[in-house]
Design a protein around this nucleic acid. Structure first.
Length: 591
DNA sequence: AGGGCGAGCCAC
DNA sequence: AAACGTGGCTCGCCCT
């Protein structure tokens, strides 16, 4: 099927196109670029679709045109305005290129990717490419074969057809998605997601500065340590092996990263192995067998080296010198973000790693703000449990209060061990923990663990009732909702008891985790206004934490703004429980 | 050679 | 009897 399009190659044509498009309620927006990174690739085409047809703006074709700057100004104005609504598939991508090349934010975003993900409600089986959802909602085939073609030079008719079609299909697609969003009662949640697109664009364009030299220094230390450990380990595992060489001690000469080979070597030494060589299973043996302790130490180094090693440096952008990670806005079914290339949501807490992440230039500071126990506060709100709510309202330390109840002592008698115990208990409950797992985690017998949980839920009685109801509803309704109305569906085999219990745990956890994601996204939206015209840039988000880079002179005032916006966002969803945000100003991302 | 998968481990 | 949720990354291993 052919799509009607007009190629826009000069300022006058662009001005006329923008005049016409500005009268529409919603337009399709797509871009074609020479590659994926806005800092190194070039923006070639901007396609703008109305129901009447598609305008393809070829930015390479009217560079010298005298009307160019005037026409581009009107294009910018239209893109920035809330109307017409700009419909794009993965709007983040197009908005990044447009912001970097034209210096303008996209106003009034409708993202068909996010909409489709919301409608599917976390079904990871579903595909959400434009091709897939056009097929699903419109019964139309969209040929993506030109997507990766060369957009540098003279464009073929097939390329222009493809470009036009991609933009045109967005208009009927939005109509179908709106129907589904309304019938599933997802309007508020969709709004939340769409308003989060530009903050994520800014986050990715800003990037996070990682001091390369410092990272490499740290790496060299770990590498040396790892090599030593590997050597010692080969010797220790090699005892009992026939001497391979006339010189030096016998060596195992095995791949230390291979489970089967390590298992075999440990067996040869007569060590009674558990059913796996997982660290936590080996841990109890470490005190008795030095070789096991050595193995665990080696693994720590190996992990540090491979997951947080030289590969990290490869991600530093040659143009900006910073890490521009890829944030997937709906990364998890619960609505949480996921992050890749690299995943800067999982940088180890150890100060050696965190201190490599800094403001840049080095006069800049980091404002590190995180929600205090946000998931437990959400649980308190949802359950309406008075003891839980009181603990938060009184400003008391919840883990201490819990410990006092569980161990039947007064709050000031609670020891550090008891508080840590209560902390693990509180967090376990959020995830729907059972006595079995809890006993394994704490070293208690199952009977003792059951007893502790019983006492816990006697103290927080409504919490028990709420969690049971959540679990049951997940099974009976096969879905759950977060505070923004986000839908999470559960697909499970009702004849499989393991799947049922998993659904029960998911039913307890998903609304809590998902509401936490709602709150963070709302905070990002609020911060977009509050940080405008300041030196502040959000450089990382980690589920309940926001890291902002800012000029030193503004650090204090920005820290206050960030705290306030995060609290306001939280309190939009939590009415009976106070929201607490803790922030600090630092040169490095270490606390 | 390269994809898929599970184990292991990092974050929240 | 009951195995705490969400991700990503890297590795070895197995398959085609």
């Amino acid at each position: 099927m052919n799509t009607h399009y007009q190629l826009v190659t000069n300022g006058e044509e662009l001005r006329r196109a923008v005049d016409d498009l500005s009268t529409k309620h919603a337009i399709g927006l797509d871009t074609e670029t020479t590659d994926l990174d806005p800092y190194t690739a070039r923006l070639r085409l901007i396609q703008l679709a109305s129901p009447e047809g598609v305008r393809i703006v070829d930015l390479h074709r009217f560079n010298e045109d005298v009307k160019r700057s005037e026409a581009l100004a009107s294009l910018r104005q239209m893109l920035a305005a809330p109307r017409p609504i700009k419909i794009a598939h993965n709007a983040k991508f197009d908005a990044k290129f447009i912001k970097h090349n034209l210096g303008v934010d996209i106003g009034g975003v409708f993202d068909t990717l996010l909409a489709s993900q919301l409608v599917s409600a976390g079904d990871i089986e579903q595909r959400h490419g434009l091709e897939a959802i056009a097929g699903r909602y419109l019964n139309e085939a969209v040929d993506k074969s030109e997507r990766l073609s060369n957009w540098e030079f003279e464009l073929s008719e097939a390329q222009l057809q493809y470009a036009a079609r991609d933009a045109a299909v967005l208009i009927p697609l939005r109509d179908k998605l709106i129907e589904r969003i309304k019938s599933l009662d997802l309007v508020q949640c969709a709004q939340l997601e769409f308003e989060c697109v530009m903050p994520v664009v800014d986050l990715e364009l800003a990037g996070f500065y990682m001091k390369k030299e410092r990272w490499l220094e740290q790496l060299a230390i770990v590498e040396k340590k790892r090599a030593e450990l590997a050597n010692e380990l080969q010797e220790m595992l090699g005892e009992g092996v026939a001497q391979a060489s006339l010189f030096g001690p016998p060596r195992a000469n095995i791949n230390l990263d291979s489970q089967p080979q390590v298992t075999e070597a440990l067996n040869r030494l007569g060590i009674p192995l558990p059913d796996s060589t997982r660290n936590w299973k080996l841990q109890p043996l470490a005190a008795q067998y030095p070789v096991v302790a050595k193995l665990l130490e080696y693994r720590t180094m190996q992990k540090a080296l491979t997951s947080y090693g030289a590969n990290m440096v490869e991600f530093i952008n040659p143009t900006t010198g910073r890490l521009h990670a890829d944030f997937r806005q709906i990364g998890a079914p619960t609505g949480r973000f996921a992050c890749t290339n690299p995943n800067i949501q999982q940088v180890p807490h150890a100060v050696e790693y965190r201190r490599c992440f800094m403001g840049h230039p080095e006069k800049r500071r980091l404002v590190i703000a995180d929600y205090s126990q946000i998931e437990l506060r959400i649980l308190a709100e949802f359950s309406g449990d008075q003891a839980f709510i009181d603990a938060f309202n009184s400003g008391a330390d919840l883990h201490r209060v819990t410990a006092a109840q569980v161990f039947n002592v007064s709050q000031d008698q609670v020891t550090k061990e008891q508080r840590d115990f209560a902390k693990r208990l509180n967090f376990g409950v959020v995830y729907g923990i059972g006595a079995q797992r809890f006993s394994m985690m704490t070293g208690l017998s199952v009977t003792e663990a059951e007893d502790v949980l019983r006492r816990y839920f006697t103290t927080y009685h409504s919490l028990d009732a709420y969690l049971r109801e959540s679990a049951n509803r997940a099974v009976s309704e096969k879905q759950a909702r977060t505070a923004s109305g986000r839908l999470v569906r559960f697909n499970f085999d009702a004849s499989d008891r393991q799947q049922i219990s998993m659904t029960q745990r998911n039913g307890k956890n998903a609304p809590i985790q998902g509401t936490s994601a709602d709150i963070l996204k709302r905070a990002l939206r609020l911060l977009r206004d509050d940080l405008r015209d300041t030196s502040a840039k959000i450089v990382n988000i980690i589920h309940d934490e926001i890291v902002v880079e800012v000029d030193e002179s503004e650090a204090e005032s920005i820290a206050e703004k960030v705290e306030r916006a995060m609290c306001v966002a939280g309190e939009e969803y939590l009415r009976t429980v106070p929201v607490k945000v803790e922030s600090q100003i630092a040169c490095e991302w270490a606390k």
